[in-house]
Design a protein around this nucleic acid. Structure first.
Lengths: 348, 348
DNA sequence: TTGTATGCGTTATCAG
DNA sequence: CTGATAACGCATACAA
């Protein structure tokens, strides 16, 4: 059997006894071009008979539009994957599809993926704030590709990219207050310096929470501080704190680390939540299923995805349009609120 | 600022004072076509100056090849995502890139993604055995797109698709023996009927393990059985088994469910591993980080990914080639062995 | 070593 | 309503 090259509209046209223009019209169901009922039937029949399948490459080239959106992730973890999945769903309903790439710990790889996406002439780009430097972003926009960033904290304000940021800081501040309300005498943030920009937001929130605590002016003001998960003797330090101050409150970088340290503390004989109360971040399946179940800050994927897509669509529609040009920074940057899901690990 | 359409090779050619053919040649670094050092320099300079970026769409259309591979997943979970990530890495080194799609619980969505990939004329397709019915697979191959399936257990043998299957059954059998060796008097498989084909493999393995146990003819032959996670009163049933028979061995459908039930049992006051010994499947981060840490069957992503890519490359290379046509079923189907990672949850 | 011409499969325009 | 025909941007034989 020879590799019979797939049929083209030319074949379909011949088979149906019409011209290729007509085939294209019924293929694209153009509403502005009226067509005879009969021709449509003939064409569809020919398509079925030949097993014709449109060549998207040629179509894209011709119409100068791909209906493809790209997404650049720093890595595949539960949070990013869920977010990407949501976005994929939503844009699909709008006739677009999403191509996701990740660049695990490799800026060079990230650039390569980006270049690829650009060469494929994607109509728009979603990108994590960590997966691309600001000047690259600027260049992309300048060249005409709409860009929507997510979790791009601390980026310069004058970049014309949509931005959908999780308001992690506020949630972390709330977590500090929660831990205090649950009776913690000392409250620490267990961070991860390796993830600089992400860690910073949590730290800012933690500090804010501590400040709010002070403003409350409660006499039994808690002792607070920051420890790093990578720090040597981290576990011992925690045990010391428990011994010295009683109920220790721990806000941890993410569920993964929170869970990991919860296990270590349990193994060391600590009782949770009696001696240590833990709050994780991301509300992954671990936190829900663990014993004791773990309080965690939930990131609303769906909300964030919807906001991101909305921004993208606005940019896609307004391309070339000078009308909606005067977009305020306010509508360019959206903050997504998080909520704390309280579970056993912070019970009184 | 007008949306300046991106420069083409025509622009580059003009700027560099050469013809477009020449530009194309240096762009593709054709080894068979010799080029003057000087022209290459000129062209590259022009490319830099203009900020030229090759239009992959046009290139693909012209050369009738996309260097794109598609992957269809039933959903995004830790296992699939890791596997996809590995494949992405490997094919990247071979000059291909991977577009991943998932069809969470929606066969219709899956067909749509497939159609999309085919319209984009991907050079090849990786697909999970659950994400596509056999007749569809056959049609795809017939039309000339190389197909490599992974975890397509129980598929008809006459389909000319590469197949890379995890040998879950054997590993499950081994797990049964392990549980017995660790002193379990009764051994149960905690399955998940909802995931039919996947569950079946585990069940086959479990049964095989039980049979091997019987052949050993140990006097203290264990009692065995199957329970479903979705079953009402599942937890109570387990507790009853523990009370009646002492040390209970549990092989669970996957880490997720294993972890979930471990937590429930702990909460109910059971001691692990003293009263219940648990083996999960997939060796996800949960099993490693939990307390007690959980024994799990590790799936070698990398191995499986390498095997899958190897098959794909063979098919891509042999396309049209009649030489390697006579491929035996043996080399078309690869079994990947799994290994049990023993942790605290099965200690004596 | 470089330039020219043709084709890739569609879309879209504009006469019939 | 339908049918030629010119783009779309690039690759590639083949000619120079």
């Amino acid at each position: 059997m020879v590799k019979k090259k797939s049929p083209t509209i030319v074949d379909v046209a011949r088979k149906a006894g019409v011209s290729i223009g007509t085939v294209s019209n019924v293929l694209n169901r153009r509403s502005d071009v009226p067509m005879a009922e009969d021709t449509v039937l003939k064409v569809n029949e020919a398509i079925r008979l030949l097993g014709y399948r449109r060549n998207a490459i040629a179509a894209n080239l011709s119409r100068q539009k791909t209906y493809e959106l790209g997404m650049l992730l720093p890595r595949y973890d539960e949070y990013f994957v869920k977010f990407a999945g949501e976005v994929e769903q939503i844009v699909l309903e709008k006739g677009y599809h999403l191509s996701v790439f990740s660049a695990p710990e490799k800026p060079e790889l990230g650039r390569r993926h980006l270049e690829l996406l650009l060469q494929r002439r994607v109509d728009g780009l979603f990108c994590h704030g960590l997966a691309m430097p600001p000047d690259t972003a600027e260049a992309i926009i300048r060249e005409g590709t709409p860009l929507v960033l997510f979790n791009a904290w601390g980026w310069p304000d004058d970049i014309d990219a949509g931005r959908v940021n999780l308001d992690v800081a506020t949630a972390c501040a709330d977590a500090v207050l929660l831990l205090h309300a649950r009776g913690c005498r000392s409250i620490y943030y267990l961070g991860n310096r390796m993830a600089a920009a992400t860690d910073e937001q949590r730290m800012i929130g933690f500090a804010e929470g501590v400040r709010r605590l002070e403003q409350l002016g409660e006499g039994e003001c808690a002792e607070t501080g920051v420890i790093d998960v990578g720090q040597k003797g981290c576990l011992q330090e925690l045990q010391r704190l428990i011994a010295e101050h009683g109920p220790l409150g721990l806000l941890v970088f993410d569920d993964f680390n929170a869970f990991s340290y919860m296990s270590k503390l349990l193994e060391a004989g600590c009782r949770i939540p009696e001696q240590v109360k833990i709050v994780g971040i991301n509300n992954t399946s671990m936190s829900r299923l663990s014993y004791p179940s773990m309080t965690s800050i939930a990131t609303p994927y769906k909300l964030q995805a919807e906001a991101a897509v909305r921004m993208m669509m606005a940019r896609l529609g307004a391309a070339g349009d000078e009308s909606a040009e005067e977009e305020s920074a306010a509508s360019r940057i959206v903050q997504i609120p998080l909520t704390i899901i309280e579970r056993k690990s912070t019970e009184r």
